[in-house]
């Protein structure tokens, strides 16, 4: 049900029934290694190319999702996924492997929440019983496309971010009174594209911050909520710079968040001594951290309500070489977990 201007409230409360999270070697050394279902110790993961490894990550995550619920592909109605690579081929190829009817999404790093919001929408309005949504990224494949060859010795500035090698997938299903055991999706806000004229592709966090801020503010306004309604508001991949900029920007707009309750997936996944500059990024970042780490903590009762705001920078290598600024977007999904 549309509430306010751009927010859906899901009255039937679709639930996240299971999740699958996969990661690469760098993630295995990070903070959240325990929250991954499968970790690979090689970036190629036994495939010939990084792109195939990328595809494999998502395939495995989806496989894990179904395995946990003992389901087969025939039980799933739709598969919504996306990534950053040209024409989102890794996601499409993974969809071809699993053979589930598929909708390809592109929202750059916001794909994870775009997919979750749409899945919840479909399930909420009886469009499907079970939908799998996923997002993935592969560091080397993304670097290859957006920046320099992986082995090129160029110096990155401290504002740069590190693309996560990982995939996260979730099974969204109808709520059949499963409130108690599973996190349910209560609402989602679709963001608009915001361009603040920043054009440095090595500073995505700074460019994406206003998009995140805008979506959060809109979400709170649409639902007439105070920020402390949520135990945690977590952004996708703003990094150090973007997080601070977003906080300041929201304060300027009159919304004051508690910095303790405003976290960023990009700052959670890696340890301090991993060379990731300003933090992590990529569609796989928010997907892996939210589906893996944060849902686990919700189940442990640490958080009751969280708002996940995945941010995406909608640029292409062509657009920034032609001097265009970086348009950014953010989608928010609110998730609730009822503890008894």
């Amino acid at each position: 049900m549309l509430t306010g201007k751009h927010t859906w409230v899901f009255n039937n409360r679709p639930v996240i029934l299971s999740t699958g999270v996969t990661g690469g070697p760098f993630e295995a050394n990070g903070h959240l290694a325990d929250d991954f279902d499968i970790l690979h110790d090689d970036l190629y993961m036994g495939k010939e190319t990084y792109e195939k490894a990328h595809q494999f990550l998502l395939e495995e995550a989806v496989g894990k999702v179904m395995e946990k619920r003992q389901m087969t592909k025939d039980d799933i109605q739709f598969f919504l996924a996306g990534d950053l690579i040209n024409q989102i081929t890794p996601s499409s190829f993974a969809a071809s492997t699993h053979g589930i009817p598929y909708l390809g999404l592109f929202g750059a790093c916001s794909t994870s929440m775009e997919g979750l919001a749409l899945s919840a929408f479909i399930v909420n309005y009886d469009g499907a019983e079970y939908v799998i949504t996923g997002a993935s990224s592969h560091n080397a494949a993304v670097e290859k496309q957006f920046r320099y060859p992986t082995e090129y010795g160029g110096q990155k500035p401290p504002t740069a971010q590190w693309t996560v090698t990982g995939a996260g997938a979730a099974l969204v299903g109808k709520n059949k009174g499963q409130d108690e055991n599973h996190p349910c999706i209560t609402s989602a806000t679709i963001g608009k594209v915001i361009d603040m004229g920043l054009s440095d592709p090595f500073n995505m966090g700074g460019a994406m911050a206003p998009a995140a801020a805008d979506t959060i503010i809109k979400h709170l306004q649409d639902l007439k909520l105070e920020p402390d309604h949520y135990d945690l508001i977590v952004t996708g991949d703003l990094g150090r710079i973007g997080q601070k900029a977003a906080l300041d920007y929201m304060e300027q707009q009159g919304v004051k968040l508690d910095p303790q309750k405003f976290r960023d997936c990009g700052l959670m996944i890696y340890t301090e001594d991993q060379e990731v500059f300003s933090g992590a990024s990529g569609p796989g970042c928010s997907a892996a951290v939210f589906y893996g780490h944060l849902l686990k903590r919700m189940k442990q009762g640490e958080f009751k309500r969280i708002l996940v705001v995945a941010t995406g920078a909608l640029l292409s290598p062509l657009s920034f070489q032609q001097g265009q600024s970086i348009p950014c977007i953010a989608h928010a999904v609110a998730v609730e977990y009822k503890n008894t």
């Binding site: 401290p158 700074g206 150090r240 900029a245 300041d248």
Partner: peptide
């Protein structure tokens, strides 16, 4: 840049890590 963009860029500059 429109005024809003300029304002934000100034804000962002404060947080941007310098090389």
């Amino acid at each position: 840049l429109n005024p809003e963009q300029q304002k934000y860029q100034q804000l962002q500059k404060q947080h941007e890590l310098k090389r």
